[in-house]
Write a protein that binds this DNA or RNA. Structure first.
Lengths: 151, 151
DNA sequence: AATTTTTATTATGCATGCATAATAAAAATT
DNA sequence: AATTTTTATTATGCATGCATAATAAAAATT
């Protein structure tokens, strides 16, 4: 028997990664969430904010606040979307572009260090398991059936 | 080339799991964080709060607030530790014990559903990768060397 | 024994992820 | 064309994870 669960391992590991990235980001007046958002913005064409949520696996409402703080820091501009009066296009400022490079370096470095220690095969399996869990949840294969009967 | 990174996959998957557990927990006047904490408390002997942080991979300061809300909800009692005047022993109330059972069921169910879809071998690899990442971070093999030179 | 250092805890502020509610614009329906 | 529904966004409140600071007790040092 293993002494840990899938969720527990995921949680602890993700928490450690997040701590690490946040510590790193602090040196650049940034945060992990901002760094990941920067990476999801196309540095050339900008990105409609509608695209960011799905791309990042986040609710649009969570993004709104992060975009606001990024705007305050001068990393992005919110421009009106000429194709949709409700929408917003997110563009990087020159400062934002520089921060994006820093974030990209950090992510590449982390991935490299891990890849150095993990065989390609193991990594494939890791990605498989991640995908399977995601799919089980988004297909609502967990909880939703029982949640009424248990209460 | 894969289109995603290790950190990204971890983040998105963990976020989905967290959303799921929180949604579930809401039915029981609880939260995911509370559920995980309940599972880390020994239902018979209680648990010194010093043990909880390391066990859960969290800072003691993060736990303090969660314990406070658990106490307000009547799930736990904080009793003085007779062996250490600074410390606190966390004991479940009868209500807390009931909530613990619910959390345990939820975790077992989730793990079962995932295990149903993932071979034992894949799962072993998954745990391996989690452990390797954790170790790399706690050994400070990432960032700390470079963080001064890059700034 | 007195002093200094370490440890356990709590309080507080910041960031962020969620949900819910409000608002404005677009799309669909009548 | 007018009305209803849907969609994109923001504001706000709650929970939670962190860091930092404060406090009290224990442990280590002098």
């Amino acid at each position: 028997m293993r002494e840990t669960t899938i969720d527990y391992a995921l949680r602890a590991t993700w928490q450690a990664v997040a701590r690490m990235y946040n510590e790193e980001a602090k040196n650049f007046n940034s945060t992990m969430a901002i760094g990941f958002t920067l990476l999801s913005i196309d540095p050339k064409t900008g990105t409609p904010s509608t695209a960011l949520g799905p791309k990042m696996g986040m609710e649009a409402t969570s993004l709104s606040r992060i975009l606001k703080s990024m705007e305050l820091k001068g990393f992005i501009e919110r421009r009106p979307n000429p194709l949709d009066g409700r929408g917003v296009l997110i563009h990087l400022t020159p400062l934002g572009l520089a921060k994006r490079k820093v974030s990209k370096d950090a992510v590449l470095r982390f991935n490299e260090v891990v890849r150095d220690k993990v065989s390609e095969e193991k990594l494939d399996y890791f990605f498989d398991v991640m995908e399977i869990i995601n799919k089980l949840i988004s297909d609502r294969k967990i909880f939703t059936i029982d949640s009424n009967t248990i209460k």
